[in-house]
């Protein structure tokens, strides 16, 4: 139940700007001004550390310790970025991360929406049992399972492969409940109609359910992608080959290998932040709320 109500909010929240315009809570002028001040402080705290990273990445390591610190590096030094790409498999790490996060996201959206459809709309023996089991397992912390997971993956001969990174995250049941909550919102008559029209369950899933829950899936997908992009402990354990590693672990390796090369580390973090930010900005635009109004009476 946990996931459901909230994800409902989440989908609607994706349409936040429009939603606000519609519900239009009345606000006084001082309240609005105060809000802007608060948000300005919040944005500053969120962004200033990044400026620091930008500044550091453009300095030679020797000039880092100048005091007081210069915010604007002069001259601008590109050596950190050159070293990043020349001396480290940084491009590979980026590709690995995007591939793994993309694969996990695609598979999870597929599997979770299928399972969510079964749980939301089908009557079958053992349904309550399955739902309860999945719900309980939401509360199992993954980092408590790293030891047995390590041995399972080793037993399967998958250590140090992409599979080791892609398969275990598929066991997280949270997405099923989110998908289920989106699908519960589809009027029953819609699938009933498709069923009478001759559609198989799989066709209903593919032609009716999937298109209708797309806005929700975008949110769930972004969430999954982000979780995967930032995951650290499991890739650290499951993959030892530097060429197969993901960004988060690779970057943390930059520090230990080249003790405190702040310029290089900053350059690495900056470049690593680019792909996920681009993905987020792209998806942000796609957060459009599709409504089911045509299917209903009003």
């Amino acid at each position: 139940m946990t996931a459901m109500s909230t994800t409902e909010h989440k989908t609607r929240g994706a349409d936040a700007s429009k939603g606000r315009a519609r519900s239009g809570l009345p606000r006084s002028r001082p309240a609005i001004s105060l809000s802007y001040v608060i948000l300005f402080i919040g944005v500053a705290i969120a962004l200033v550390p990044f400026l620091y990273v930008v500044s550091t990445s453009l300095k030679e390591s020797t000039s880092l310790f100048s005091y007081p610190p210069d915010w604007i590096p002069s001259p601008i030094f590109w050596g950190n970025f050159e070293s990043l790409f020349a001396d480290h498999p940084f491009v590979l790490w980026t590709i690995n991360t995007l591939f793994v996060a993309g694969a996990v996201t695609a598979l999870k959206l597929w599997f979770d929406s299928m399972a969510g459809y079964a749980l939301a709309k089908m009557e079958f023996a053992g349904r309550r049992g399955v739902a309860l089991l999945l719900l309980l397992s939401v509360a199992i912390p993954i980092s408590a399972l790293i030891i047995p997971m390590f041995f399972v993956v080793r037993y399967l001969g998958l250590l140090n492969t992409y599979w080791a990174l892609i398969l275990p995250p598929l066991a997280n049941p949270l997405g099923i409940f989110m998908a289920r909550s989106f699908i519960v919102g589809i009027p029953d008559d819609l699938e009933a109609s498709a069923r009478l029209d001759g559609a198989s369950e799989f066709t209903i899933y593919r032609k009716i359910v999937l298109p209708l829950i797309r806005p929700g899936l975008v949110v769930l997908g972004m969430f999954t992608f982000m979780l995967q992009y930032t995951s650290f402990i499991w890739p650290l354990i499951a993959v030892s080959d530097s060429d197969r590693q993901v960004l988060a672990v690779g970057i943390s390796g930059l520090q230990s290998a080249f003790l405190q090369d702040w310029g290089l580390l900053s350059a690495g973090m900056l470049v690593a932040a680019v792909p996920i930010t681009v993905v987020f900005l792209l998806v942000q635009k796609a957060f459009v709320f599709n409504d089911l109004s045509g299917a209903l009476k009003e």
């Binding site: 009027p187 008559d189 819609l190 009933a192 109609s193 498709a194 069923r195 009478l196 029209d197 001759g198 559609a199 198989s200 032609k207 009716i208 298109p211 209708l212 599709n290 409504d291 089911l292 109004s293 045509g294 299917a295 209903l296 009476k297």
Partner: peptide, 19 residues
Amino acid sequence: RPRDRDVSMVFQNYALYPH
């Protein structure tokens, strides 16, 4: 199964596929 019954149904809320 419903799909093999050779019946068509018109629903109260029409159940049109909105997409």
